[in-house]
Design a protein around this nucleic acid. Structure first.
Length: 265
DNA sequence: CGCAGCGCCTGAAGGC
DNA sequence: TGCCTTCAGGCGCTGC
């Protein structure tokens, strides 16, 4: 479940490994989600950027190689093979960049730079959480345009890009906001804005959260799973007030919250 | 246009 | 022991 901190952790190491390299060969799984990977053959990688959970490898011919890791996707320099490798790019220094994805929820595309019509979530997503355009007011205005539950709004990527199920639970817990609310006050938006930045910055500092499949570019695990206050801790005491954390399902997403710190209404 | 529901995927874990 | 069910969940698509 790579979310922004996991993708950013991968991006930093990926950038130092592949920036400036030319893609001289490659192959991909035949499904429409991965087959476009081979369209990048022949181009060189100028930069490795990130927007929300999407990796953007800018190519020197004016296109972007877009990689979304889905639930179980990972990237590594590794030329070995196993049944879950969905794409492979040979680079001009003799190394091989490998995309592995057990459940195939990820996606690879090659598009003209900035043309994300084929990836509607990327095209419509909100500001990066560390961008100056993400402010308490921008968050509050976004939530006022929607009637969906606040957690579902965060998962939509529209108020801010990069938040998934883990960091949504963490941020809402930190802000003291009930995830099932359909609207929030200006004061709550202020707290939630700060909480989102804090939990994501902490996740990056800890190299990401490894619960099941996530691995860094080097194949190691992150350590943020040891720093979680809320996600997956249902049945355990709240780290702030001691109340037992409760699990419930919100719009088909497993959700943990503190009934005392995150009251209804 | 926004929202809600569904399907995609596969391994791990739990029940009987 | 082994089979079956449930769960994890980001995102694209569809229907209202």
């Amino acid at each position: 479940m790579p979310e922004l901190p996991e993708v950013e952790t991968i991006r930093r190491r990926l950038a130092s490994a592949v920036t400036g390299r030319r893609i001289v060969g490659g192959e991909a799984h035949s499904s429409a989600k991965f087959a476009p990977a081979t369209a990048a053959i022949g181009a060189a990688i100028s930069t490795v950027d990130r927007r929300g959970k999407y990796l953007l490898l800018a190519l020197d011919d004016g296109r972007d190689l877009v990689v979304h890791l889905g639930m179980t996707g990972s990237l590594a320099l590794d030329d070995s093979s196993d049944p879950y490798v969905r794409a492979r790019w040979q680079l001009d220094d003799g190394t091989t960049l490998r995309y592995r994805d057990i459940r195939r929820f990820g996606r690879i595309a090659v598009v003209p730079r900035g043309d994300y019509a084929s990836m509607p979530t990327l095209a419509a997503q909100g500001p990066d959480p560390f961008d100056e355009t993400f402010t308490p007011d921008s968050l509050w205005r976004a939530t006022r345009r929607s009637t969906a539950r606040i957690k579902t709004q965060l998962l939509s990527q529209r108020p801010v890009a990069g938040v998934g199920n883990i960091y949504a639970d963490e941020a809402l817990w930190r802000a003291g906001t009930d995830p099932a609310r359909r609207s929030i006050t200006r004061a709550q938006a202020e707290r939630l804005h700060g909480a989102i930045r804090e939990v994501l910055a902490q996740g990056i500092a800890n190299g990401g959260t490894t619960l099941r499949d996530y691995r860094t570019f080097d194949g190691t695990t992150g350590t943020n799973q040891h720093a979680l206050d809320c996600y997956g801790r249902h049945g355990e005491p709240c780290n702030r007030c001691g109340t037992t954390l409760v699990r419930r399902v919100i719009d088909a997403r497993s959700t943990t919250h503190c009934p005392s710190c995150q009251p209804r209404r």
